[in-house]
Amino acid sequence: MIKVEEKLFQNRYRVDAEHPHINIGNPEVCQVECKTQQCTYCCPAGCYTREGNGRIVLITDGCLECGTCRIICTEFRNVEWEYPRGGYGILFKFG
């Protein structure tokens, strides 16, 4: 099992504490209605994890701001995605 955290550890971030730029619209939809939960494996930063009861937990601190989760949530459009406030989020050193 590859730990994506080890990769993200190399990156620079300016985390906007308490202002996540991505939110799950209705958590119940993810837990009950969404059978595929593709956000849990498509997100390249592993921001979405599935708990034992099927609940999806989203932690945006390691977000690479690619937009994948926004686009792959095709069935329920349950991802509310905005850019971080100016200056916050990932700070690419090399890009």
Partner: peptide, 30 residues
């Protein structure tokens, strides 16, 4: 998962020696 794919690619016997000894300094997605 995309990072698993990248990890597997890096371990290909024709690719791994090219990267040997390098220090990874950033991981990005786009």
């Amino acid at each position: 998962s995309p990072y698993a794919l990248l990890e597997q690619m890096k371990s290909h016997p024709s690719i791994k020696p090219l990267l040997a000894g390098g220090e990874m300094k950033e991981y990005t997605a786009h």
